[in-house]
Design a protein around this nucleic acid. Structure first.
Length: 335
DNA sequence: TCCAATGATTTTCC
DNA sequence: GGAAAATCATTGGA
């Protein structure tokens, strides 16, 4: 019952919720939303797509086992018993007992399917919500832009809100990320001032070169007016200046893509995971058949044969994550 | 595989 | 509430 409720809440069971958009919205709210809405939108669509995939697999498998396989299998066993009744007396109670066993087994399959589905949703959610998992290094260009600003404002490396927004836009990151970056940078600069000094010199030289190139590209009329002085941070913050950052702005090109994009390698297989546990139940069904005494172990009705997606050779992820639980273990956090 | 670098989060301080 | 400091978790190069 609790599994059912959870599956309904997650938009996997029950009426269609637009592919789980409600769950995605809830997850987004829990993750804080924040200024990175475009990035979140990408993630939401990915989350929805994966949830829809789980939902589809869940319903397909549920229908397959609940509707078709159970009835078919029950009929099959009844036929076998009828056949056997010619050679030995079979009491109605025995038939009833067999039917009950079959129904219990199929119920167990259903529970396993629900548990596995819950687990898959949990993993999906945790991946979606855990921002640390999504950490991506900023692009080189973004780091350069941030460093350039930092070393140009070494005496006061505290960008205003406007500056943060500008930097965020140029670096294609969020304002919060800019704040994080400056927070980290200030701390780490202080901790390792020696190394930071080298970096500061590097950016100072860069700014100087940029300023020179601007100057040389200017015509005679401008020569009486010196180019905006490049910042020459000395490491003690005595001469931060602002020309460096500004002059270099013209060279800044907005970077492509977003570090928030999901990794290509994010290929854990939901389908395999959902089905991993069911396999063991199918195996135990074979034992039920063997109790009838007249049914070969490899001749299960088609619907009770393991689906190709449950092929052990294809369940790499599932076998790593759900092995040892197939015999009915509790799903952590699933209820 | 190890480890430094780094982005994000949490805790502490003002 | 914002910044500093500590810490966590992941990335990427050697």
């Amino acid at each position: 019952m609790r599994l059912d409720n959870m599956l309904i809440a997650e938009g996997v069971a029950g009426p269609e919720k637009g592919g789980g958009s409600a769950a995605a919205a809830a997850a987004a709210a829990a993750s804080g939303g924040g200024p990175g809405q475009p990035d979140n939108a990408i993630e939401h669509s990915d989350y929805r797509a994966k949830l829809a995939q789980i939902r589809q697999i869940y319903h397909t498998e549920l229908e397959k086992y609940e509707q078709q396989a159970c009835n078919e299998f029950t009929t099959h066993v009844m036929n076998l018993l009828r056949e056997q009744s010619r050679t030995r007396p079979i009491a109605p109670k025995e038939i009833e007992r067999m039917v009950n066993i079959i129904h219990r087994k199929f119920n167990a399959i259903q529970v396993q399917l629900k548990q596995s589905t819950c687990e898959a949703v949990m993993i999906l959610r945790s991946r979606f919500l855990d921002a640390r998992r999504k950490r991506r290094n900023f692009s080189k260009q973004a780091t350069e832009i941030l460093n350039e600003y930092f070393y140009s404002h070494l005496s006061n490396p505290y960008p205003s809100e406007e500056a943060k927004e500008e930097l965020a836009r140029k670096c294609a990151i969020t304002v919060a990320q800019v704040s994080n970056w400056f927070g980290n940078k200030r701390i780490r600069y202080k901790k390792n001032i020696g190394k930071a000094q080298e970096e500061a010199n590097l950016y100072a030289a860069k700014n100087a070169a940029a300023a020179v190139s601007v100057a040389t590209s200017q015509h005679d009329g401008n020569q009486s007016q010196p180019p905006s002085a490049p910042s020459t941070p000395t490491g003690n913050g005595s001469n931060p200046g602002s020309g460096g950052y500004m002059s270099s702005q013209s060279q800044m090109v907005s970077q492509e893509g977003s570090f928030m994009n999901l990794q290509n390698g994010d290929s854990y297989n939901m389908a395999n995971q959902v089905g991993a546990n069911v396999q063991s139940q199918v195996a135990s069904l074979r034992q039920v058949i063997s109790q009838t005494g007249g049914y070969g172990g490899d001749s299960l009705p088609p619907h009770t044969q393991p689906h190709s997606m449950y092929d052990p050779s294809m369940t790499q992820y599932a076998s790593q994550h759900v092995s040892g639980r197939a015999s009915g273990g509790e799903v952590v956090g699933a209820s």
